[in-house]
Simulated assay, not measured.
Amino acid sequence: MRVLHFSPHAASPTFNGPLIITKGGTYSGSWESRDSEVPAVEVRTSEPVIIEDSKIRGAGFLIRSQGYGADITVRNTTGHGLPPTPYSDYAKPRRFLAVDVFRNVVVENCYLEKTAGIYLGVEYTGNGSPGQSIKIRYNKVRNITGEVYQGKELVQFVQFNYRGEVPHAEIAWNEVINEPGASAVEDNINIYNSRGTTDSPIRIHNNYIQGAFPNPLHLTEYSGGGILTDSPGTDSLEATAYVKVYENQLVGLGNYCLGIAGGNHIEMHHNQAVVAAQFPDGEPYHFWTSGIWAKDYYKTGNTFNNSMHHNTLAVLGRNRDWRNEIFDSTFAAADEFANSILPDSITRRLEDAEFILWQEKLRDQRINIGPVSTI
């Protein structure tokens, strides 16, 4: 059953105005909002909603659901950010999908450009089955940016910030490329006070993540990077836990590649990081770079039983020095790691080789990323 509610807000000739969905069903179309205060698509139902074979553009949230215990699947859909407009109350970054309170979220085979990525927050209310979980897979992403009207927010390709344990959750086989000066991303993937389960940890694997830079680009300080578990919560049942990060490729990132800022029962293994710390024009990065770090950053006592092992690091610092070291102030962060690439071999050519390797992996696994239908 399809129930379409169109807003009178003006839209371009090839796009309809904003859409409000109040009934479950399958929806396909082209929608946009040129007002940062109005989502391009808003889901106001707990019934299962599928958005597929669609085009969505927005100056604020592209797809939004708030407080409905949502069950949303988005597939074969493109999302583009439009120039942001003034906002009231709080900033509305151009999240491709922002959901507060959910039972099930699936984002597969989508293309995102100049958006603020995917945010899942507040609370998981599902039953713990594979059909009520989180799947973010096979997406192609370009230039994550937190741009809002006259400013910017800290945004990610994916951030989890929910309460409750989610089994069967997966972030996998995504291609994320951020260009210097054209993107404004914090951590590309951030797991914040969010949990998997003992038997079914959150799995973050086989993603290709390239680029993480300060914005404006001339800044020398930058706090973002690659994949981070973050956990300032003081409640042991709230802290980030049960996460596995493996077989990811991390290329050309500023600040760090893999990090544990808090949480427990986290394992990061068999990832590969290659950072030549050099812009396309040959200029070296003017901000910090490093491979792996791990510590109880918030000193809440909830950081334990973590490991980093068998990760391959080829990371140069901003001064062309060796930055493969693993920072550890609280526990054995790395049981073992490979360090077989000499510093003078870490060049942009080596970074380029990582993308070729990624394409070979996709072919070998017969995986198509981005929309698989003509839209």
Rank of each mutant, 00 (worst) to 15 (best):
G181Y: 06
V166P: 11
H309T: 08
H310C: 04
Y87Q: 11
E32A: 07
D100S: 07
D352E: 15
G128F: 12
T22H: 12
R34K: 12
G211S: 10
R323V: 03
H5F: 09
T45H: 02
Q278Y: 00
H9V: 05
V41Y: 07
T234C: 01
L362P: 09
A333T: 12
K135Y: 07
N109D: 13
Y208N: 01
P130C: 10
V107A: 08
N215C: 01
Q210D: 10
V3K: 09
A294I: 04
G224D: 07
S54C: 11
R195A: 04
W288I: 14
D281P: 10
K92P: 11
E354W: 00
K55S: 11
Y285R: 15
V185M: 06
R137D: 04
H269V: 10
S36G: 06
N76G: 02
N127I: 05
F6P: 05
L154V: 00
R363N: 14
S340M: 04
P284S: 06
R366L: 07
E267Y: 10
N306H: 09
I51T: 11
S133N: 10
G164R: 01
T220R: 10
V315H: 09
P280Y: 08
L19Q: 04
D89T: 03
G181Q: 10
D321I: 01
N248M: 09
R2N: 05
I346P: 11
S236C: 00
G121R: 04
A98P: 01
P343T: 08
I266Y: 01
P167C: 07
A338E: 12
L362T: 03
T73G: 02
K135S: 13
S340G: 13
V185T: 08
